[in-house]
């Protein structure tokens, strides 16, 4: 049995710490011990195959029962690659977000902004052979949260991705360029170094816009990549 090619170690500065005092909810939830480093085994190198047959795609969040959601309609698209620049094909991309008023279609969201009956805010798409994905939605609103500081989350869309190895599993958030709340947001500011933060901000992309119909934002996502050489057994 040939050992699977190991994943590259996490690049310094590219990921947030688990212990992030400015984000109060981490206080009792971050492990106090560092994670145990282990070799990449078949378990981490393999991944579930998510097929549209079992996981129905849903790529237009801007319409419910033929009725338009309130807000700025936009297309969000990008490429999913690994750290070696190779496209990740067939990746399942799940997204969820607040409505234009900053309210989630979620029982536990008690923010007294209005719900929009024509917006649920959940989608699922798959990358093509070149790693490209695309969906249509509306721009989410900012909303208050109970964390020390200005206490409003910047506009964002949650992304969840499964790649072709379970170690690539990623949940992240996409932010918008020029949002003044980014400077005060504990979660965004805690993401890692400046380059790591920059990668979380989408670009307004004229090429993705549809005249008289939708704005376009590009958000490329990088999943962990495999090392060039097989792991040497110690």
């Amino acid at each position: 049995m040939v050992d699977p090619i190991p994943f590259r170690p996490v690049a310094p500065g590219s990921q947030p710490p688990l212990d992030l005092p400015s984000y109060r909810s981490t206080a009792h939830r971050h492990p106090s011990q560092p994670p145990l480093r282990m070799p990449t085994t078949l378990t981490e190198a393999s991944a579930p195959s998510f097929t549209p047959a079992w996981y129905a795609p849903h790529d237009d969040l801007s319409v419910v029962d033929g009725k338009q959601a309130l807000g700025e309609r936009m297309i969000v698209a990008g490429r999913v690659t690994d750290e070696n620049g190779r496209p990740v094909a067939g990746a399942m991309v799940e997204v969820w977000q607040a409505n234009a008023a900053g309210r989630y279609h979620h029982a536990r969201d008690q923010h007294d902004a209005p719900l929009d009956p024509n917006f649920h805010g959940e989608g699922r798409v798959f990358t093509d052979a070149e790693g490209r994905y695309s969906f249509t939605t509306i721009k989410p609103g900012a909303y208050p949260w109970r964390n020390p500081g200005p206490g409003w989350r910047p506009q964002h869309i949650h992304f969840g991705l499964h790649g072709n190895g379970f170690a690539q599993r990623l949940i992240t958030q996409m932010y918008f360029p020029g949002d003044p709340l980014l400077a005060f947001d504990a979660i965004f500011q805690g993401s890692g170094d400046d380059a790591a933060k920059r990668r979380l901000i989408a670009d307004l992309d004229p090429e993705l816009m549809r005249p008289d119909w939708a704005l376009g934002y590009r958000f490329d996502i990088v999943l962990r990549g495999r090392a060039a050489t097989p792991f040497e057994n110690a």
Partner: peptide
């Protein structure tokens, strides 16, 4: 090499 996108809660 571009490092992996940062995880978020």
């Amino acid at each position: 090499m571009t490092p992996a996108t940062a995880s978020q809660t």
